[in-house]
């Protein structure tokens, strides 16, 4: 038994404490927005926020996530809705599969750095692979979101 707090909701699940958070979220809790990409922490498709930090849920055991605040793509609207709107407006996604992880990493970046430079974005986002090659638009979306957030202050 383990208790996970995902997007503000508590879930008590039956899972080995060594089960990666990814599979607990997808197969047991049933939230499928978080994606499996590599299983080795290499691609970032499975990224979720753990106490605000973008982590690879395919390598994070359930035991390491207990008692922490987990945010998945389904909960990002409460973290940075503007980012999601800009993502849509700029037609960032191609196949869309890696985009949950990309948005999670971008959310974490903007939460810690409201006005990132192009290099800051490269550093924060290079753990997330996009095989379609949406990188140019991901960068544009992050920069634009930062700009909108600055203007609204």
């Amino acid at each position: 038994m383990a208790t996970l707090t995902i997007n503000g909701k508590k879930h008590t699940i039956e899972a080995d404490s060594s089960m990666p958070l990814l599979w607990a979220i997808r197969d047991i809790v049933g939230l499928t927005g978080t994606k499996f990409g590599c299983g080795k922490g290499l691609c970032g498709a499975c990224s979720v926020l753990l106490d605000g930090v973008s982590v690879r849920s395919c390598l994070t055991p359930v035991s390491a996530a207990e008692g922490k605040i987990i945010v998945t793509i389904e909960g990002v609207e409460n973290e940075n809705k503007v980012l999601q709107e800009v993502w849509d407006e700029l037609n960032v996604a191609q196949c869309g599969y890696c985009q949950s992880g990309q948005i999670i990493s971008a959310t974490a970046l903007l939460a810690s750095n409201a006005n990132p430079s192009s290099e800051d974005i490269d550093t924060a986002m290079s753990g997330n692979i996009c095989r379609c090659g949406t990188y140019p638009r991901i960068k544009s979306a992050i920069l634009k979101t930062a700009e909108l957030n600055q203007n609204s202050k």
Binding site: W87, N91, V92, A93, G96, I103
Partner: peptide, 21 residues
């Protein structure tokens, strides 16, 4: 033209193969 699926892609909603339960 904006993608018909853009909002969904930005919120994890579209169902890919493994999302079928």
């Amino acid at each position: 033209l904006k993608s018909v699926d853009g909002k969904g892609f930005a919120s994890g909603k579209p169902k890919y193969g493994m999302d079928i339960k």
